[in-house]
Design a protein around this nucleic acid. Sequence first.
DNA 1: CGGGAGCTTGAGGAGGATCAAATCATGTGG
DNA 2: CCACATGATTTGATCCTCCTCAAGCTCCCG
Lengths: 231, 231
Amino acid sequence: MKEPNIQAAWHGLASCETCAIRHLVLFSELELADFSGIHVPIEDIWLSPGHSLYQSGDRADHLYTVRSGLIKLEQILADGTKRIVNLLSHCHVSGLEAMTAERYEHTCIVLQAAQVCKIPKEVVVKLAPKLIGQLMKKWHESMLSTQECLRDLSTGSARQRVARLFLVLPRSVGPRCQLFGREDVGALLGVTTETASRIVAEIKRCGAVREVAPNVFELNITELEQIAFGK
Amino acid sequence: MKEPNIQAAWHGLASCETCAIRHLVLFSELELADFSGIHVPIEDIWLSPGHSLYQSGDRADHLYTVRSGLIKLEQILADGTKRIVNLLSHCHVSGLEAMTAERYEHTCIVLQAAQVCKIPKEVVVKLAPKLIGQLMKKWHESMLSTQECLRDLSTGSARQRVARLFLVLPRSVGPRCQLFGREDVGALLGVTTETASRIVAEIKRCGAVREVAPNVFELNITELEQIAFGK
DNA sequence: CGGGAGCTTGAGGAGGATCAAATCATGTGG
DNA sequence: CCACATGATTTGATCCTCCTCAAGCTCCCG
């Protein structure tokens, strides 16, 4: 497992003002003057798959906005097995619980190379009055995303779940997406690793997806939708 | 199905000031002066099982704080089946999405006789700056509750799920709780109605619960925990 | 070349789904 | 007050899916 690659860790909010996705994330409603009051560092971080942003139980003092890549939130169940309860991608915010709780309740791990902004909780608290709208929007988004993950991806046959997973994954160019390890697929769908592997292979065989490179798939959307939602 | 029983629907916030659970719900941080600015009605409503507070797709213009009883949030899946994604009880807030979205995304139905406060969205928006803390707390609570519902109640064998459901249900006197229809149990656990019925019967037979009245159960906590989390 | 981690495949069995029917509870109208 | 209709619950029998345990396979790295 490689070390996290911190390419840039600048301080202050200078970059936020010009951030291309600012209007989509937390700070959309801020004006120039607001940035000047901030004297704690906001880091811009690149991470490769396998790295964790935080662990369940860690002191929750940062929020993270995902600029690119894919990130999983997982929890350990009573019987020791892991379960993924949310996938975060472009413009999502993770660690929102920092705003009200002492500690994180998920372990947050990178699935596909990601770029994130690490924002100290105190910055958000200080700006909170101006950020209410965005914060609520992000809470709501998190909620929808979690419900989608847990509801759609753990209902129906394993075939349907895998098909829905393919449809949910962020697309790169055209109908193309990247999958991750079978163990994670299992933890996300609530099935065993073996079943995950079997079904992915089967869906590959039946032509609903085509593996153009290791774990990179080209999707046949209509086929997949047929499997995912067909009676 | 009986009509909703609106015993009191008073206007203004006079009652909020003296509400016994105020400090646990949205308005804990308000002072007397804050209540005077409110000129839209906040209703206190009693509802019997089966009634809906709102339907998925309805215009979202009210928040509801649950004072007592039990309420389900359900959604209709692509294949037409219903799935319960959250259970709300004492001091929970439902309809938080009204704060950022146009429409409700769940259908909200009473499972056990409930008393709720119906708060117009505009009241909360107006008081928002003072309520940030509580709002976040409630978002967080909702999130935890949803994750618990969907994660714990749709993982493992049906036996385990039923046992966990009994452990999650709000207790009345001592280790006693009330269950609801088998169809709802199924929709909550992600199993069929028949399986729900079968397993409840089995758990009754093996002595982990005792039915002291129709759908009222006395729990054997240690037995249930053994089933719920035992290997 | 050998070792390890992740992925795939196989055989067997347990657990739910499905379809069907019987029982029970409730409310209605005669 | 009873007969009946309606809906929820229970139970049964059968089939299929997925879990379990196990072995082989591929790829990467020392």
